[in-house]
Write a protein that binds this DNA or RNA. Structure first.
Lengths: 230, 230
DNA sequence: TTGCAATTCAAACAGTTGTATGAAACTATC
DNA sequence: GATAGTTTCATACAACTGTTTGAATTGCAA
């Protein structure tokens, strides 16, 4: 099968160009030029441009999801079936952040592609992302085991915020660097992961030590949000 | 000037169509059809398609920025020049969340347009967003006054996370509803604002009561997450 | 009314896009 | 080495894009 060479040349070229210049202004003709293959090869091997993009994204995000679930499994086994909340969140945001940030990963085409996919929202990718709900439910389940006394809504908000911080850090990396004039170190990925996890845990526990039971008073808002809302 | 009628018809039609169907598949021909004006009118009044989009976005985000700064000013005056940290964050995320969420705003074209602008990242809008740094610096300054002992980096991270949570809530509103099967109430905007502010304050204070003096250390962990970091 | 500028209009332009076609080149099996 | 199936290729297609043009129309001032 010498056709595999063409197929993967297209995939590699597409990933590189999309990573560099975004989905908006990379055409099939750009891709086949970079890959040194014929224009028709894309439709022959992938069916359409959208299916090419989908294949790129599916491959990368399946890898991330596997990494997440692996890390979660390890943490749960270590805890005898019940992983601590910080380990769960670490498994959730670690792989994504590690994959997209960091100095060594800077040159990684895959990483830059995933950043693009997170910044620009193109139809084939959006369709795939919408099916990610099942994957997230597994983390909600683990969180529920770790914090059985929490309201479900609080767990969802906690997971939502954890993803918010990690994705927004990837999306707005450049702006954060510029805004902070370099004072925020975007190269120390482990520190970023720890920071996101720490804040997420605070969001879930309301500032209490997670082992401890419930409420006290607040670092919390005066308004309508009460202790047990967190 | 009967030309104002054409101009604003274009603006209204464009905002509506972009809000409904996204920037990707709305053409100038769609817009002029909806506005009942001639195709050439867009270039005559705005110069180009991108400038039309830019004008739409600038108008809306200037309004948001004004609201933010107003709220900040009020809070600072009330505090004699130094607003408490939660009030500052409230001023930062409140206007955006209020503008884009909530049941009454559901039908608002402007709100839906701004959500689109936050989901799809189109060049003219990205260019404008990049100039928003100066605006954010005013909030950093206020935060520094409120928490003079904090590391600068921690302030930047805190602001970054606050924006992360509010923007991600707007972007992924539908997914959060679906994931949580309705358990997260996206209609109670005030509660959402309070929740985002509360978590942001926790992120900045590391779980200490904000009134209290100094943050243990850099509030956030360096290495792995340990118990006393919470 | 006349004259001048601002606005509208239909039409065309120039370029690009993803996709389809059918013949040619290749590959492996017998 | 002929055959059947796969893969490549040059080329054409059809549609759509934002923008421009130059003539018509309108509105307003003198």
């Amino acid at each position: 099968m010498s056709s595999d060479r063409t197929r993967s040349a297209i995939l590699a070229a597409a990933e590189k160009l999309y990573a560099d210049r975004g989905f908006g202004d990379v055409t099939l003709r750009d891709i086949v030029a970079e890959a040194n293959v014929n224009l028709a090869a894309v439709n022959y091997h992938f069916g359409s441009k959208d299916e090419l993009i989908a294949e790129l994204f599916v491959t990368r995000s399946l890898a991330t999801n596997r990494e997440r679930l692996n890390e979660l499994k390890v943490a749960e086994e270590k805890g005898g079936g019940r992983a601590p909340i910080d380990a769960i969140l670490h498994a959730l945001v670690g792989p994504t952040l590690r994959g997209c940030l960091g100095p060594d990963r800077e040159g990684s085409t895959a990483a830059r592609f995933m950043i693009r996919a997170s910044i620009e929202s193109v139809p084939p990718i959006r369709r795939i992302k919408n099916r990610e709900v099942d994957h997230l439910r597994k983390f909600i389940a683990a969180m529920r085991r770790a914090m059985p006394d929490s309201d479900d809504a609080d767990l969802y908000w906690g997971l939502h915020f954890a993803l918010a911080m990690s994705h927004h850090t990837i999306r707005e990396k450049e702006r954060l660097i510029r805004l902070s004039e370099g004072k925020c170190d975007l190269n120390d990925v482990d520190a970023i992961v720890d920071r996101v996890v720490a804040v997420s845990v605070l969001a879930l526990t309301g500032g209490e030590a997670p082992a401890k039971k419930p409420p006290v008073r607040s670092a919390m808002p005066q308004g309508r949000l009460t202790r047990q809302d967190l």
